[in-house]
Design a protein around this nucleic acid. Structure first.
Lengths: 131, 131
DNA sequence: CTCCTTGTTGCGAATGATTCTCATAAGCGC
DNA sequence: GCGCTTATGAGAATCATTCGCAACAAGGAG
């Protein structure tokens, strides 16, 4: 359910999410807010993120470690990500190739309403160099 | 670390995994084993699954609900999945296109050691019909 | 076949992320 | 400002997963 009132807390979460580099976990975001002097509760951060994701202002994915990661989206259009597994740096990708492939393969198997999860992980230039 | 001894427990998990339709969570698998009269411990199921995944006999992915799902793999080669979000029916896919795309895009951004997560979800023929 | 050494098991406790409960504190329309 | 609701926050509750450790058993040695 979408919130019906505007609160500074929700705004704080939105702003912090935009500032954050790449994907952040709810826990991480909460920590950042606290460090920044905010007193928002953890539960509220979760609620705010859930709302943002629902409206499409944020984007979520599961990290291999099982945490749910969020990121603010510039475009509400569908896209994918290339994330540095070391520092979290993120690039948004338009992947027409993949979309097409997904639909093609899906219908070949007779599946309908194809959705997909496509994300790339690697080491960004600077982290590669640091190795 | 790979196990060095063979135990009936590990074998039981392997068999149960093969029998299971599509992806199953560790919890689910444990429940199935218990229902089948087995007394394997939950922790052991987790350990066994981790081993299978490590050797490439099983394949894992995160469900949107945050559980880790496993499935036995016919081929040890790298591949992707097309899963029915209704009944769990699964098809394995060879996706050379995607592999290439991933590497191409990755290096274009200067990223190294590109890994990727690619999964398709949809409604299988029978479930589509049932709608 | 029996003994011994170690890798394994299985339990329950510990951890971590997420969700829920509920009393209290705000929004917002009047 | 007033009151009616909805959102917040602190901690408890839930879940999946992992740990710690004593009891156990697989396999090789004798």
């Amino acid at each position: 359910m979408q919130p019906k009132r505007n609160t500074w807390q929700r705004e704080a979460v939105r702003v912090e999410l935009v500032d954050a580099p790449g994907f952040v976990s709810a826990q991480e975001l909460h920590r950042r807010l606290k460090d920044g002097g905010s007193t928002v509760g953890l539960a509220t951060v979760y609620r705010a993120l859930a709302h943002l994701a629902e409206v499409g202002d944020a984007d979520s994915l599961q990290s291999p470690e099982g945490e749910t990661l969020f990121r603010s989206c510039e475009t509400t259009a569908h896209h994918h990500h290339l994330v540095c597994r070391k520092c979290g740096e993120t690039r948004e990708l338009a992947a027409t190739v993949v979309e097409e492939w997904a639909n093609r393969v899906g219908s070949k198997h007779g599946f309908t309403e194809i959705g997909h999860v496509v994300d790339l992980f690697g080491l960004c230039p600077s982290c590669s160099a640091a190795e």
